[in-house]
Design a protein around this nucleic acid. Sequence first.
DNA 1: CCATCTTTGTGCACGCGTTCACAAAGACAT
DNA 2: ATGTCTTTGTGAACGCGTGCACAAAGATGG
Lengths: 263, 263
Amino acid sequence: MATGRTHRPATRSRGIPEATVARLPLYLRALTALSERSVPTVSSEELATAAGVNSAKLRKDFSYLGSYGTRGVGYDVEYLVYQISRELGLTQDWPVVIVGIGNLGAALANYGGFASRGFRVAALIDADPAMAGKPVAGIPVQHTDELEKIITDNGVSIGVIATPAGAAQQVCDRLVAAGITSILNFAPTVLSVPDGVDVRKVDLSIELQILAFHEQRKAGEEVGAPRRPRGRFHRRPWRPIARPPAPPAPTAAGKDLTGTCPP
Amino acid sequence: MATGRTHRPATRSRGIPEATVARLPLYLRALTALSERSVPTVSSEELATAAGVNSAKLRKDFSYLGSYGTRGVGYDVEYLVYQISRELGLTQDWPVVIVGIGNLGAALANYGGFASRGFRVAALIDADPAMAGKPVAGIPVQHTDELEKIITDNGVSIGVIATPAGAAQQVCDRLVAAGITSILNFAPTVLSVPDGVDVRKVDLSIELQILAFHEQRKAGEEVGAPRRPRGRFHRRPWRPIARPPAPPAPTAAGKDLTGTCPP
DNA sequence: CCATCTTTGTGCACGCGTTCACAAAGACAT
DNA sequence: ATGTCTTTGTGAACGCGTGCACAAAGATGG
């Protein structure tokens, strides 16, 4: 999951483990799809398949919420949708502000998955005066000067940062000072926030790098044993983009000079 | 982290734990920043702070790569940048295709964080014939019909799916059939792929839902003990957006009717 | 060359998360 | 009412990840 997660002290909130909380939205999505198809009940096995997890894990996850299933039958879809929604806090409406209306910010503003989950885009904020007033996704962009006023007036407690990395910490500080207590950060920076403020981050390039690691490993396996031409014919040659720097030489007179001579 | 991660069998690849692999990009980002400031060496403590992790964790992570530090001094920045880049497979260039050029796809095409890490956008693909030929981020969009040809001609092994949920599985199948072995999925769907294909997912709304959970918990604490007006004055009233469905009644003659009567 | 000081690398213990496997619970048929 | 069959809910075992705490290693100064 591209889901970068921030260093939370792993405090299981009200008895529900973090790992379970992170999966509840998955279950909710699968259940919503079933609900739209008017499926009345679903077994843990079916739902687990639809959500892409193990059925035992799903049952244990649900057991933290309570005993909402019926043995021999399964789970009532509508009832479970409501229980999970309530647990996640989606039975109320959450106004959010998006700061940084570049390509990504605009994409987020247009993203339909927010409104359907109870998240309402209360305002779009950008530092560029030329953007001010310009409508994006039907909402006029407002200038950063208005940030504090927007947040207090609308009672916003969740902020989304989609600015360049250089501006992120500054924006974050202003959001927190204005009363924001949850931040979703798309900027490739580590944000420092006071206690009581939650930060979750999404870094698009990190996910690709993790994929590259495994991809390299798959390609590397081929030079190993049976030399079976797996994949196809489209293996790229190994093209280094940087010379390996020499390992740092010992500061004092090195006792062992082997291995540091250039090839 | 919004990092959604897919149910990998937790196979630690070549001895390096998955959790460590997921953090290597973080270290790399912090090290790159130091490198640009021409900082020669860095201690585990400093680097850990910059990356937002524990210093003991960082040292243990690096120990999986080898002994690249110097006791009493720290780590050589340039050397470590190279070693991590090599481990992640970023010393070669990875062509990627982006399928689905809507708001999000366009944002990804314009995202600068890819090119700087060795990822090259080889092609943009969309199913809308009206998009064909239109340049996005300087690259002309190509039609889905060309998908297989693009992938084989360019030797692409990493694909990014930014289509609507309904089209994702179909696109995924075609990508896999054409030779793609790593997929980054932005569509809110569970993709099923054959063994040997890696999938990582990024779901924007999931991250917000997790934040909402904790936000609700913070608000709920206030009604508890000392009624200290934490936060500020902007607490929203609890506004239910759906009536709680009644729990499923027993099919046969219910022995116990208490608790199912409407309020 | 020796003493001191800094910082790495890691053994160890602990806690969380995952999975197995099964007893208990309820539906359904007879 | 009773038996059978399906599916839940959970106790227990295991493995991974995290953090502590310290010994070893090397730099630095005299």
